[in-house]
Nucleic acid binder design. Structure first.
Length: 305
DNA sequence: TGGAATGTTAACAGCTGTCC
DNA sequence: GGACAGCTGTTAACATTCCA
């Protein structure tokens, strides 16, 4: 299943249900160019995520760090970690992705599996992400397992859920036994950092239609203006205003595709003070003017019809 | 007490509104 | 659409506070 767009709340939590309550695993094959933005925007979810890159090179941003994952390699992304994915070079990239609700691995709530082998790891921010490389034996095994999981899921033969469950338990055992230094730092400062960046992003997402000052964003996280810039860039690799502009342009792309509003109405709707500034920034981000992009979308819709 | 985190300040760059 | 002035954001250097 290709993901074209992900639905997220104001604090960037993805609200998509992965799988269903009785089998809470989402399995996706993603071609990055087919996403509505051309990349997977910043978001987080409670599910843990395993990715196997099939083609190209993908740069994953997870919390403060960037990970470049090449063809046949992969990455594990921990529960509740902010992440995004972009193709690294001009070449398009494709990967398969497993979003797994931790409760599926935990069994009953309060079980020894949950208490000893799952929750401490999920709360551990030193393991926000683990790259999986073919030249490390235990990681190569996981990559092979991910490939098998995709095959099993695609075939949907009788008993495939049991088969996937047993493989996932083996994968999880391999992950936790090869990263043993997480237990003691469960309640570190990074929890505060997570909350702080979520407050900033939530404020931006709730107020992007209006004028936002750096002072406002800083206040949302109870820090000074300069600390706001420093911290925001550390977490997202963007300055607050680079992020705000990027977010406004992404929102305007949705309006250009789905509404009959004029360019000046859309500029106003997403919080740009002037149309000329909106056009300038849009062109810088997409190499198109908003009008060219809108016409392109109309042509594309007619072709599909 | 020293290192890390955070605040203050100032210089510079970029944004925005206004006028033509 | 271009020029311009005022405002705001970014960043670096240094100061202060916090905490192990």
């Amino acid at each position: 299943m290709q993901v074209f767009d992900i639905q997220i709340t104001n604090d960037l939590q993805e609200i998509t249900m992965h799988g269903n309550p009785s089998f809470p695993i989402g399995v996706y094959k993603t071609l990055l160019s087919k996403n509505v933005y051309g990349y997977v925007p910043l978001h987080w979810h409670d599910e843990i995520q395993f990715v196997l890159v099939l083609r190209g090179c993908v740069s994953f941003s997870v919390n403060q760090s960037i990970y470049y994952v090449e063809e046949n390699n992969g990455i594990f992304i921990n529960s509740s970690c902010l992440h995004s994915a972009r193709t690294y070079n001009a070449e398009d990239s494709e990967y398969i992705c497993f979003d797994i609700n931790p409760s599926f691995l935990a069994g009953s709530h309060g079980s020894i599996i949950c208490q000893k082998y799952l929750e401490p790891f999920l709360k551990s921010r030193s393991n926000a992400a683990i790259t999986l490389n073919t030249f490390i034996p235990w990681q190569k095994e996981i990559l092979n397992d991910l490939s098998n999981l995709f095959e099993i899921y695609t075939r949907h033969e009788f008993g495939f859920e049991l088969n996937m469950y047993s493989i996932l338990l083996r994968v999880w055992h391999s992950v936790i036994t090869n990263t043993p230094d997480y237990i003691n730092e469960v309640h570190g400062n990074t929890f505060t950092e997570d909350q702080r960046i979520k407050n900033m992003l939530s404020f931006i997402h709730q107020n992007y239609k209006q004028k936002i000052t750096l002072e406002d964003v800083a206040k949302a996280a109870n820090v000074s203006r300069s600390e706001c810039c420093r911290f925001f860039k550390q977490m997202t690799k963007l300055t607050p205003f680079e992020y705000i502009i990027s977010y406004r342009i992404n929102q305007s792309i949705l309006l250009l595709r789905k509404s009959d509003l004029t360019i000046s109405e859309i500029a106003d709707e997403v919080g740009f003070g002037s149309v000329s500034y909106y056009i300038e920034k849009f062109r810088k981000h997409t190499n198109y003017t908003p009008k060219e992009f809108q016409n392109y979308c109309i042509t594309l819709t007619k072709c599909i019809d």
